[in-house]
Amino acid sequence: MDKESVRIEFTVNNKEVALDIPADATALHVLREMLSLTGTKEGCGIGECGACTIVVDGKAVNSCLMLGAQLDGRMVTTVEGLATESGLHPLQEKFMEGHAVQCGFCTPGLLMSSHALLEEKENPTRAEIEKAIAGNICRCTGYQQVITSIETAVSERLDGENR
């Protein structure tokens, strides 16, 4: 059974990639299986858990619901692209310090959702933070330490800017 394949070119974590993918492959499949970016997780495959969240052109999306073909021409960030040469992203640091990570399976998704929020909003309210992560299910933490960690990342960024 030969499947139709399509060629896509996009930027992932600041790297340009070009590859042929099966036309029906999800973005999640392309990232995990074809590009070995296994930091993005599959928890349900149907858009209910948020473990597969990536940032596409600044927006947090469920990569299990997106076709790989739709990645063509886009700017994609996955959890592997959060840290830079100068170190971890502040959200990553705060998640670690704030004990927001237990089993860690939901963590990449939560990081990407909050990353998209922090890129969009300078000083999000608690309600905005909650809304941003409302699609990310975490069965371990009860979210409280996650929210606090995001809030700390926000406030430290503001402090840094005001200094």
Binding site: G39, M96, F105
Partner: peptide, 17 residues
């Protein structure tokens, strides 16, 4: 700091899948 938390926030850690 919890064990493995760095590998968990960077996405490096390997779950079975």
């Amino acid at each position: 700091p919890r064990s493995c938390s760095k590998a968990k926030v960077t996405g490096e850690i390997k779950f079975a899948a």
